[in-house]
């Protein structure tokens, strides 16, 4: 039987810390161990592998985002795996609903684990984040490199400087300028 990633951590703090640090190995195992169940569910409910991939990745990102924002604090690996699966399932049901030709099995609709109170604010925040993602794609390669190293890989400015051939002070300035540019691009779109 396969086991989820969190089994490797003795406590909830380590798991959340690894996810907040975007630990590559943890994210990978989390994906690998939980995707098959979501795929089975989608395939058994009129979907394709491509649909399964879409909803699972959306669910994965939604779960990741809520952990980053301290909106969800998984107690253990089962809770985390269940959370991702629930999101994927509801997302797939919502898609089927949108397509009137399909009929869906009846389930309890009252729970949307990733959506809670303040839905209007959350929707505004989500719009803003989507805009950031679009603008980030159009940012220059150098800026994308610096910002992703600093914020996603959590590299220090010294490490970034050594990889890019800049001084630490220039790396700091560039990081600031790149973030400002991204902010301006989001505002003007």
């Amino acid at each position: 039987m396969r086991q989820n990633i969190a089994s490797g951590f003795n406590d909830q703090v380590s798991l959340v810390r690894a996810l907040k640090a975007n630990d590559d190995a943890v994210l990978k195992i989390l994906y690998r161990d939980n995707y098959p169940k979501a795929e089975r569910y989608v395939l058994e409910n009129s979907g394709t592998e491509e649909d399964a991939k879409d909803v699972f990745q959306e669910a994965f990102i939604a779960a990741w985002r809520n952990i980053q924002l301290d909106k969800f604090y998984p107690e253990n690996e089962t809770a985390l795996a269940g959370y991702i699966f629930q999101i994927a399932k509801f997302k797939w049901i919502d898609r089927l609903r949108a397509d009137k030709k399909n009929r869906v099995i009846s389930i309890d609709e009252t729970i949307r684990p990733w959506q809670k109170e303040n839905e209007e604010n959350e929707s505004n925040d989500d719009d803003f984040i989507q805009q950031v993602k679009k603008s980030f794609k159009n940012l220059g390669e150098v800026c994308r490199e610096i910002l992703s190293r600093f914020y996603f890989k959590k590299e220090s400015l010294r490490t970034i400087a050594s990889h890019t051939g800049l001084t630490e002070a220039t790396a700091r300035n560039n990081k600031y300028r790149c973030l400002q540019r991204l902010r301006e691009m989001v505002k003007t779109t």
Binding site: N22, I61, W64, Q68, L69, V132, K137, L147, F152
Partner: peptide, 8 residues
Amino acid sequence: IGINESML
């Protein structure tokens, strides 16, 4: 969050 989700 937006930068990180792009990378994720």
